[in-house]
Structures are given as structure tokens and as C-alpha cells.
């Protein structure tokens, strides 16, 4: 659990980053964009967060 402790704060930081990127007002930048662009933005950010979380949570340093 020791290594996980260190990763914890990074995960919380990721959650906050995700909150900013995936909710208004940041999300308003995608409003009115073409459907595919908004779709790609949402899923792209989402996938990025998951990758980052996997990297942070599974790292055993």
C-alpha cells in the first residue's frame, strides 16, 4: 500500500483536471462545434484520463 499512498494525491489531481476538462465552462468550447469534433474531444479527454490514472495507480515505484 505504501506506493499507492504516494499515487493517491496524483489521482486526486487527475480527478480535478478531469472535472475542469469535462464540465462547463471548459466544455462550452466544444458547444456548437461539429458533432464529430465534440464527440472526439469528450472521448479523447476521457481516454487520456484513464491512461493517466492507470499509469499512476499501477506504478510500483
Amino acid at each position: 500500500m505504501q506506493a499507492f499512498n504516494r499515487g493517491r494525491q496524483r489521482l486526486v489531481a487527475l480527478a480535478l483536471l478531469g472535472l475542469v476538462l469535462l464540465t462547463p465552462p471548459m466544455l462550452n468550447t466544444q458547444a456548437g462545434a461539429s458533432g464529430l469534433d465534440a464527440f472526439l474531444y469528450l472521448f479523447g479527454v476521457w481516454a487520456g484520463l484513464i491512461l493517466a490514472a492507470a499509469w499512476v495507480a499501477e506504478r510500483r515505484d
Binding site: 489521482l11 486526486v12 480527478a15 478531469g18 472535472l19 464527440f39
Partner: peptide
Amino acid sequence: GMGFLTIYLGPTLMLMLAPVLL
């Protein structure tokens, strides 16, 4: 439209608040 995604973004963010869950 894309509003349905909110129901899945919330849990994604919550899971990252792992210290609280732990």
C-alpha cells in the same frame, strides 16, 4: 444528444478520488 455521457463521466472522476474510497 451527448448528455447521456454525464452518467459515466461522474463515476470516472469519483473513482479517481481513490483516497476517499480507500
